[in-house]
Amino acid sequence: MKEFSYTIKDEIGIHARPAGNLVKLVKGFTSAVTIEKESKPAVNATALMKLMSLGVKCGDTVKFTVQGDDEDAAAKAIEEFMNANL
């Protein structure tokens, strides 16, 4: 299992477009990925609606948990995605 945190730098945060792209990315891996925002319960990163309902804004820190066969590659790809987009 891999875990890492990321602090959002994008002004708008995780709105529809980046959320959709993130879900698409995560779906490309077999590992189970969850996202957790501070106090809120973790959500499955392939559930677009739940992801959006986290209401992640600029300055928020989210924690990713990746578990599965391709967890290393998945974690790396997600981190790159976050760095490039959010």
Partner: peptide, 24 residues
């Protein structure tokens, strides 16, 4: 209402038949 963006420009609904709908 599952998610409502605080900019009010998009809303996510979970309908009673289990369908998740995003209206953007």
């Amino acid at each position: 209402v599952t998610t409502l963006f605080d900019t009010n420009h998009a809303i996510g609904l979970t309908l009673d038949n289990g369908m998740e709908l995003l209206i953007h």
